[in-house]
Nucleic acid binder design. Structure first.
Lengths: 141, 141
DNA sequence: CTGTTATTTGTACTTATTTCATTTTTTAAT
DNA sequence: ATTAAAAAATGAAATAAGTACAAATAACAG
């Protein structure tokens, strides 16, 4: 709780009840939730919370680089408290969205060193994979 | 026109006027258009064309792997007739979406060989960059 | 031709997200 | 404390992308 508040402050975001609750939720659940999931999870303990506030707050967090957006084909916007560069794997069977660490510089650096990107000013890199996750693969046949 | 038709056939898609027109448009314009852009471009010459047909047709093309979807944060779905693996660069200044070739296997293979992905069955890989494109960078200061 | 199937069309609907005016909460100053 | 001012939250209404569906049209086989 205190950590959450400190984190928000460090990102230049003024703390409020709802902001802390939302950020806290994202820090505890690495499931890349949608707006609706966050709203439904918090609503029982914060009955006055409105969806609009969830939308506004998430947008604010993204603007202050406190969280990341995860955009997957055909899916609603999802959010991720981990702003370090990492890829996502989207399982088409179970729907899970799994974080994939990128071994710093080796994988990513290689990509960005692509000669075709020489004159580009890269601010963000998004990488995502789609397929079948290990646990679905095992329980398959 | 004939090429377009042959291409559709090779993908197992039955040709119709509207399907040819839409695929043709995508093959001639590498701008990664949205549904609306395609509709507005074709409508003058095909006044009876409906948006629904554009939606249906694009979905059909994607299912038959004749085109690719391009999903960018905060953008509507966009479409790309080039189904070869390549990345996209999204310029935040001019809005252009530029194809970035990946030097086969070296860049991409490196990524997918990531130890964290060992037990995943990868069906698709999406890579996109966000930042400022060379021409905007030049005309900047 | 004629009946059958595939495709297209347009309207109505759903649903995610945004807008905005009002209310509530927070902050700072008296 | 009290109050004025600013910031944030709320909820209802608007917007817009995309989908469902039934009717109309076109393509096709016999």
């Amino acid at each position: 709780m205190k950590d959450t508040q400190e984190y928000l402050t460090s990102k230049g975001i003024h703390s409020t009840q709802q902001r802390i609750a939302i950020m806290n939720y994202l820090m505890k659940h690495h499931t890349h939730p949608t707006v609706e999931e966050i709203f439904l999870a918090l609503n029982p303990k914060m009955p006055t919370l409105s969806r609009t506030t969830v939308y506004n707050t998430l947008k604010l967090f993204v603007q202050h680089d406190a969280i990341q957006t995860v955009n997957l084909e055909g899916e609603n916007a999802r959010f991720d408290a981990d702003t370090d560069m990492h890829a996502h794997f989207h399982c088409v069977r179970c729907g899970a969205i799994i974080d994939i660490p990128l071994t710093c510089l080796s994988d990513l650096g290689n990509l960005q060193a692509n000669p075709a990107l020489q004159n580009y000013d890269i601010k963000q890199t998004h990488i995502d994979f789609k397929g079948i996750c290990p646990s679905c693969k095992t329980s398959e046949k």
